[in-house]
Design a protein around this nucleic acid. Structure first.
Lengths: 149, 149
DNA sequence: GTACATTAAATGTATATACATATATTTGTA
DNA sequence: TACAAATATATGTATATACATTTAATGTAC
């Protein structure tokens, strides 16, 4: 569906103005899709993002800082996200020996299990959302990178 | 900057998975840029979006429903956004004669003035952010529309 | 070693958001 | 007409987010 129709606006000041709105809208759209999907697993998309980062480090631990740097949403409050995940038993904290300011965060077996469970369904659902060829996806990735400068 | 570097992730499951993250990231990125910019005018990007919609209708009034349909972020609580704008004297509410359930919302002169003031600076700033040719912008708009399906 | 700046993480707080529910009005229909 | 269903907006509430501040540990200059 064209962005003009999505937000019922027929005219834009320029192709670039339209693009700004299109990027904003598409970001929110995919964010909603993901949030909706993750809800059934009782985690937010941000929490999912943290779990993915921790699995990427596994079996090494990660620090709050490392997680922040790799998150899609930089503004997130990682400490409190970790609180939530810790309460659910999906991650565990332990103080870092080398630098006692830091906190080592590791994904638990339960966390890894949950991700595995999500992976399967996510792959299926993402299939349905993929309306682009690989060529087009590459092109879109490159244009978005260039858009941000 | 490539998305790989933005979130320090070198590998993605597929070009499409990377794309999902790229769209999410780019949306949040432009959202942050806009929020930061609008802050100096003491309004949020959502409030700005509402003002733009109201200017588009001017001198006609708009209803809460019409605004909702045209907003970039559909999930917004338009009633409370209008509260904020009304307090600042940028919009005014009046009950609709034809249908007393509806509320007529109109941008005030102060609201129009503020938008005019924002327009000038926004155009300048957006210039700096435009790293694409018109051809590329058109292409990116089309690919995003196709991405959402 | 002491003093001061820097860094890592956590916390406080105000505002924003998501989602359910309430209130008022209108519409459709028996 | 009466009464249920639908619609438009507003409100209640729990959670999330943005941003400033705090606490603790480390690094650095003297």
């Amino acid at each position: 569906m064209k962005i003009e129709d999505e937000i019922k606006q027929s005219k834009f000041e320029s192709e670039f103005h339209k693009l700004t709105i299109n990027v904003l809208f598409s970001g929110k759209w995919i964010n909603d899709v993901m949030n909706q999907f993750h809800k059934q697993f009782d985690i937010s998309s941000q929490q999912y993002n943290v779990l993915r980062i921790l699995r990427g480090q596994y079996p090494k631990a990660a620090t709050v800082n490392l997680i922040s740097e790799r998150m899609i949403d930089r503004m997130s409050n990682v400490s409190r996200l970790i609180d939530k995940l810790e309460t659910k038993g999906l991650v565990e904290r332990s103080s870092c020996k080398n630098d006692r300011r830091q906190v080592d965060i590791k994904i638990t077996n339960d966390g890894l299990q949950l991700l595995k469970q999500i992976d399967v369904q996510q792959a299926q659902i993402m299939e349905k959302f993929n309306h682009l060829t690989t060529e087009e996806a590459i092109q879109l990735n490159n244009l978005l990178d260039k858009f941000r400068g």
